[in-house]
Design a binder for these strands. Structure first.
Lengths: 193, 193
DNA sequence: CGTCTATTTGAATGTACTCAAAAGCGGTGG
DNA sequence: CCACCGCTTTTGAGTACATTCAAATAGACG
């Protein structure tokens, strides 16, 4: 598994000797998952913060009616997982699943603690990661509040062109907060233009 | 202005000598704002990350049609502001306004840089702050995707009882992602039960 | 008391959903 | 290679949730 991209990204934000990089990687569990496989199951406390090395994952929340709501598509280079459950050790309401065959690094919760203690510069790395993530979440919230489903779909296509190639439309619909039927109708309307 | 609560909160997460606390506070600008006053204006790059010492602020996004969308109500002890603009120095799309007479501490962007350099333990503080904030945002996203307007209103009442006392309903409606007229109809329906 | 804004009400409309069924598509086995 | 199966996507009709617009009412403040 090629972790060069991850290490060089880390080095953009923090100082890291080769020894320290090796230590960081030693705390993670590399894993290969096949399309459709689950990484984290509903109900159990989340054990891992997940870094996508290659491939693509998606995470979704299952509500009390049993309907799934896609929260995130995590492409190569992204971190994903259920932060709430990871932080507070409560049962997770989020499932993480591979959309394609993927390679991931799992960072267990206890390893995260060790990492932050031994290499405090990772506090900075995750501070920046979370800060950026917060900005992304803010933009999504604004979009959901102020923009129609059709415009959200167009924005999605523009922002994540590769995803539309292999992500089933029903998941894209769920991510956009609409039903697959309605997305289909939006697409028909757009086609006729 | 009483900053004891802030300092003791900081001390829950990081080690801080009295001298260091004083240094931190010296980087901030204390300010009193009256009800209705704006702290950050639309269009200009955001200068400050804002800590609410007392009172309550709200931040809202203005879309291209000129409609406002409330993003956050920031009560005492919270941080608020436009992180996107603060981080990337682009023009802000978010306005921050005082809902009640309030006391705030402003942390300018350059002071934040100095702070993180001189007292790296603040990387940890903000890492934890952003991590928690991300969890809150995630929950709100899930709510908006899976729960009806009526239920969102009930959840809001339950979560922020004090706010309903003095926040105009139209802002609550905006926060919930609905029109004031529709909130009014929801309320009538709930009353009749 | 008058003015300004917030809230409520009602009617008409629109956006998105539900349900049911048909069509398309990919894989698997005979 | 074709037939069948299971799943995704599309279609259509009927419906529900939420909006728009216009106007009335209520509240807050000087």
């Amino acid at each position: 598994m090629n972790t060069d991209n991850l290490i060089s990204t880390l080095k953009q934000y923090i100082k890291l000797t080769d020894e320290e990089s090796t230590y960081f990687l030693s705390l993670t569990l590399p894993m290969r998952v096949h399309q459709g496989e689950m990484l984290e199951k509903l109900g159990e406390p989340t054990k891992y913060f997940i870094h996508v090395v290659s491939g693509c994952l998606m995470s979704y929340h299952t509500d009390k009616e049993g309907t799934d709501h896609v929260l995130q598509f995590a492409q190569a280079g992204w971190w994903t997982g259920d932060l709430a459950s990871y932080t507070t050790h409560v049962g997770s309401t989020i499932t993480t699943r591979a959309l394609t065959d993927s390679e991931v690094l799992l960072l267990p919760q206890t390893s995260m603690d060790q990492l932050l203690e031994k290499l405090p510069q990772f506090e900075r790395y995750f501070r920046i990661l979370f800060q950026k993530s917060l900005i992304t979440h803010g933009n999504r919230l604004i979009q959901n509040l102020s923009v129609s489903a059709e415009e959200r779909y167009l924005a999605f296509q523009k922002k994540y062109p590769p995803l539309e190639q292999y992500v089933p439309l029903k998941y894209i619909a769920s991510y956009l907060g609409i039903t697959p039927e309605f997305l289909s109708k939006i697409r028909r309307k757009l086609m006729s233009k």
